[in-house]
Design a protein around this nucleic acid. Structure first.
Length: 738
DNA sequence: TACAGTCGGGG
DNA sequence: GTGTACGACTGTA
């Protein structure tokens, strides 16, 4: 029989291959089995390889052995022992025994996700349209009908059941569950639990949803259901595949991007998806469409793709490229960082180019950005761990692309295609949201790819490549500066992938076009206009008013929209009252068409500030607007000087709610000890205890940040007091901008 | 004054 | 399952 449809789920079966779920064009959900052997490779001294051969031959489960040639990206062509295991589910245990018995051999392709192997071998990836030849429920042949890079893939029709507790389980115990299916929505009390389970069973049997979309499902709802199912002995087809239990992952914390990250526990299904909106990477940013895009481009099953941590998505893509092109994937990273000379160490410490901005207000400023600068550099100049580089030449590479650029190029192209399409797509076009979501998911992958190059445990990473990227970035920025200067512009600021310039006279469209062209010509990298500012203010350091800081500024574009960086309003830990006040002031300032007109809007600014301060003093500010939010950087007992966030977490601990390192906590500042009131305490904060004085100080400070930059100073600063502008490359390599 | 703790990026 | 920057800034002792 022939079936066409979408690949919905993929996981190992216990016998000799994998289970595929297809949403058929016929509307059926097909559960199929596909025989699929997996291979790992071993390399090393022949005597040891022979011993391994013997070791494997003597085992009960069949392993097909052969000698073959493959390419290691660092050492080139090598002879390896290929070990083919017919049962993918058995690979993990078998390989563990092998690696323990022969620890000195070098292993490849040993720990690769089954879905990635499948995508590399068959071209069929999660959500791909495909055509399957079947005999019974056995797959005889399968072929993809679309590619990962398709801009408008046809989406499968999906049946979605939403489940949500009626309260946030991290604060209060929920009393009910809200069920929603299509236009039906109803609430059931949690007790008696039997009624909840029976209802759920009925819905699952009647509608057979493809996706169970929950609030707090990973951390609370599914574990709650699982415990009740066990307790009451009611069987529920929560997995479509009755052969499987719910798959759970424990909560954990890990270090990423310089900070502790907390991931709650997870629950995944088989043959059906469970996605928890609260425990899904960036759900609020790109929702279901972004999660589906992640699955398509990474080739990882949707439930995993949606919960990805930064590096794993891009690694998955690199693995697929590697398997498709016959490159071995090291089991453990083979290459240690080579020792560096003193000079190289100094250079290695440089990250993105940072220029000290000219403090103050500037009119008619052009801001330009390189588009996806670091990924663009990797692709254009072929930066990859296996490609040798000496020096920085901004010439497009003509050599065979390395594994990293080869992986990135289609992704970068796809994202640029979405961005380009969005640029002149009308507002009412219903593709807009999808395009934005996909481009946002792709951006994530592109950005982390750069970081991953420098990660010591990345399979295809090398610190030298990472440094090469930032070196190219600095060179590109310097060339942009030259181009602008030759056209008579004054350079106000440069920051990693952006440059701000101005001229004595207001530039017109032709001037801007010329500037963009010249910069693009000289760097060979795509460049985009960030905007033409009516005015922009680069702020001084709070500590020393004469010292500029690289990334604190705000400005107003010609169309009246604002851009804000680095000030309080941009920080997650700032109370909404302060952000709203700062942004409100900016909105009023944005009405001024030029610097001279700012004076005219100041009375309105004054009235606005006055209203905010009065509201605070009179207790009319909504409590939510006073809530600060911070991440706990360590476990509670590890604090030497408990921060306000730690003290709030202590309060929660006292009522039995433990917070782990990496979790965010919300609190309000109160008078006396401990000086905070955790927002998630069962008792609401007493308005009388709020430290209004403190909030007022913070509010004034936030107001001053904005106003000091735009209101003329009482006394003009002495010309000789102005800071000396210095060019200073420093390590800011994380500021990759896409 | 010194040190400990937190945030950033884009859209 | 995986990036242990780095500078600016704030709060506390």
């Amino acid at each position: 029989m022939k079936i066409s449809g979408w690949l919905f789920d993929i996981y190992p079966n216990m016998v000799n291959g994998l289970t595929l779920w297809l949403i058929g064009d016929d509307g059926q959900r097909h559960c199929l089995q596909h025989e699929f052997a997996v291979r790992f490779y071993a390399a090393g001294p022949s005597a040891q390889l022979r011993a391994l051969w013997k070791f494997l031959e003597e085992r009960e489960e069949p392993v097909k052995l052969s000698r073959t040639e493959r390419r290691d990206i660092y050492t080139g062509k090598i002879t390896v022992l290929a070990c083919e295991v017919p049962n993918p589910a058995a690979l993990r245990d078998l390989f563990q025994q092998v690696s323990l018995a022969f620890p000195d051999l070098t292993y490849y392709d040993a720990d690769i996700h089954l879905a990635l192997r499948y995508a590399a071998e068959t071209g069929v990836f999660p959500l791909a349209r495909c055509e399957v030849e079947t005999l019974g429920n056995q797959v005889q042949a399968i072929q993809p009908l679309d590619k990962r890079w398709e801009l408008d893939p046809v989406a499968p029709p999906m049946r979605i059941l939403s489940l949500a507790p009626d309260d946030d389980p991290s604060c209060r115990t929920p009393k009910g569950i809200i069920f929603q299916y299509e236009r039906y929505s109803y609430r059931l009390d949690l007790e008696p639990a039997r009624a909840v389970l029976v209802n759920l069973r009925t819905i699952l049997e009647r509608f057979d949803p493809d996706l169970i979309l929950t609030n707090h499902g990973d951390t609370w709802l599914i574990p709650w259901l699982a415990s009740k199912i066990k307790e009451l002995g009611i069987s529920i087809p929560i997995n479509r595949d009755p052969a499987y239990q719910i798959l759970t992952h424990k909560e954990h914390t890990y270090f990423s991007y310089g900070k502790i990250v907390y991931r709650g526990q997870q629950s995944q299904f088989f043959g059906r998806w469970h996605l928890d909106k609260q425990n899904t990477m960036l759900w609020s940013d790109y929702g279901l469409d972004g999660a589906l895009e992640m699955a398509r481009v990474t080739c990882l099953p949707v439930q995993e793709a949606a919960r990805l941590s930064p590096g794993s998505g891009i690694s998955a893509m690199q693995f697929v490229t590697a398997m498709q092109t016959g490159i071995l994937i090291p089991w453990r990273k083979a290459q240690a960082e080579k020792p560096k000379t003193a000079l190289e160490l100094i250079r290695a410490d440089m990250g993105g180019m940072v220029y000290q901005p000219t403090i103050g207000l500037h009119e008619n400023v052009i801001g330009i950005d390189f588009v996806s600068m670091y990924p663009g550099i990797m692709v254009h100049f072929n930066i990859s761990p296996e490609v040798q580089r000496s020096g920085v030449a901004l010439e497009p590479s003509t050599e065979e692309p390395g594994i990293v650029p080869q992986t990135l190029e289609p992704l970068l192209k796809k994202r640029i295609a979405y961005k380009t399409a969005l640029f002149d797509m009308p507002k009412w076009d219903d593709r807009r949201e999808k395009y934005k979501a996909r481009s946002s998911a792709e951006k994530w992958l592109l950005v982390t790819c750069f970081g991953y190059l420098g990660y010591k445990n990345a399979r295809f990473g090398r610190i030298e490549s990472h440094e090469a990227v930032t070196a190219y970035g600095r060179e590109a920025l310097l060339r942009a500066k030259e181009a602008a200067e030759e056209l008579g512009y004054e350079i106000l600021h440069m920051y990693v992938d952006g440059i701000w310039v101005k001229k004595a006279t207001k530039p017109d469209a032709d001037d801007i076009r010329k500037l963009l062209e010249d910069v693009a010509d000289r760097t060979g990298l795509p460049i985009a206009l960030d905007g033409m500012y009516r005015w922009v203010a680069f702020l001084p350091s709070q500590v020393n008013a004469k010292v500029p800081v690289a990334n604190r500024y705000f400005g107003v574009f010609q169309d009246g929209s604002t851009k804000v960086r680095g000030i309080e309003a941009r920080r997650r830990d700032t109370a909404p009252l302060l952000s709203k006040t700062q942004m409100g002031i900016l909105e009023i300032l944005a009405k001024a068409p030029d610097i001279a007109a700012i004076r005219k809007v100041m009375p309105e600014v004054d009235r606005f500030i006055d209203s905010k301060v009065r509201a605070l003093r009179d207790g009319r500010v909504p409590l939510e607007d006073l809530v600060m939010r911070q991440r706990l950087s360590r476990e509670l007992e590890a604090y030497r000087t408990p921060s306000p966030a730690a003290r709030a977490a202590q309060q929660l601990a006292e009522v039995g709610k433990t917070m782990r390192a990496g979790q965010s906590i919300r609190f309000i500042i109160t008078r006396g000890k401990p000086g905070v009131h955790a927002w998630d305490l069962p008792a609401e904060v007493d308005r009388k205890s709020i430290d209004v004085q403190r909030y007022q100080t913070l509010l004034y400070r936030a107001i001053r940040t904005v106003l000091d930059a735009v209101v003329p100073l009482e006394k003009p600063p002495d010309l000789f007091d102005l800071p000396v502008r210095i060019e200073m490359p420093i390590k800011t390599d994380l500021m990759a901008v896409c």
